[in-house]
Write a protein that binds this DNA or RNA. Structure first.
Lengths: 201, 201
DNA sequence: ACAGTATGGGAGCGATCGCTCCCATACCGG
DNA sequence: CCGGTATGGGAGCGATCGCTCCCATACTGT
């Protein structure tokens, strides 16, 4: 019925996410996006309405891919919760490839850049944050039910510490801090969950 | 020898810091700065060279005031280290006035926005970070020397956890998170320093 | 009083911003 | 084979960007 597109919309969103993630919203121009996504202005605006809407698409895409993967990695119910937490946090601060380091977390970067001024953005970043906290809560609850954590441990409290630590780690990864030092912080945060309760007789 | 200025340079830097702090670098235009500092473009550029240089001045000003005050608050050698740490972290996430909330930490905001692209900025944010870590290290060492912390505690490790927590707290303050929840995270982080060692007989 | 000098005010520079419009192009249904 | 329709390409819109220049102004040292 009409001329077919020469580009894949999902690939475009992925590339846009990459750019916004690395540079932030204000430092990324529509022309930058056009170059990276191989889209002319007309195609870009017909497909994504405007820069801001595309940014929201990028945020949603990030949550649906990166954030979802993170949540999945945390949901390994068959392994000790401390191990899972440790590997999960290490994964958060260890970048798969060389040029992917220094990106931090797209949600964290966005929350600090736009969270105070852009309500639509704020709703999304808060939702992403709450999802992470929920995943932490589940993992800790499962660990406690398996007797790996003290029954006295207040899980909601522990979530606050771990979540705060994660945000700090993400900032430090973006700032290029040593993975070794971040690992130290991770290990100490997990140790703060307290010792494993003694095996009942 | 010449016409005197009608503005105070320090006040101008303070106002510029305020603006950059709240909005970030890219979202703050030279005209915004001119309006806020009551400076015409000519005066602004004659005094501060350009926007980027003014931003560096603002960063330095922040470090010389806010950061210095933070370091000072942490250096209360005559009081229990846990108390000092707790009150210090609470102060970091509790804003003096209503309209000052949601600003987070200028250094953290800047590190995430520009740290990966702007080398001059990166040097300053890293220096600020190292100063904070040094202050934490001193406070912990003093506490250990006073017998408030276990001699087994690795202070460098503890610094990594506390510092990471602080960055996370700053992000969460900017994101508008509940002070109550942040307090929970603070208390748990401090508890992670371990129990006070038993009094020697 | 007067020459010297840096200031405040403001018009406006070229570049880039986000975005719109037009049109030749290319595909599909009949 | 051709009319209908959405696309890719690109010129260019008004607005704003960071910044420069000119000039009347207002103060100081002699």
């Amino acid at each position: 019925m009409a001329r077919p597109r020469q580009f894949d919309e999902k690939n475009a969103v992925t590339s846009a996410t990459e750019l916004f993630w690395r540079r932030g919203y204000h430092a990324t121009s529509v022309r930058d996006l056009g170059d990276e996504l191989k889209l002319t202005p007309s195609s870009l605006y017909r497909t994504f309405t405007d820069k801001h809407t595309l940014f929201l698409r990028a945020l949603d895409h990030y949550r649906a891919t990166e954030s979802a993967q993170a949540r999945q990695r945390l949901d390994a119910a068959d392994r000790p919760v401390r191990e899972v937490l440790r590997e999960w946090m290490l994964w958060l601060v260890t970048c798969p490839a060389g040029d992917k380091s220094g990106r931090g977390c797209f949600v964290v970067n966005t929350a600090t850049e736009l969270g105070t001024t852009d309500e639509k953005v704020r709703l999304r970043t808060e939702a992403a944050f709450e999802t992470t906290r929920q995943a932490l809560r589940s993992a800790l609850a499962a660990g406690r039910d398996r007797g790996e954590l003290s029954a006295d441990l207040d899980i909601d409290d522990a979530v606050e510490l771990l979540f705060t630590t994660v945000l700090g780690l993400r900032v430090r990864e973006r700032a290029g801090h040593d993975t070794e030092r971040l690992t130290t912080a991770i290990d100490l945060a997990i140790r703060a969950l307290g010792p494993a309760p003694a095996e009942p007789a």
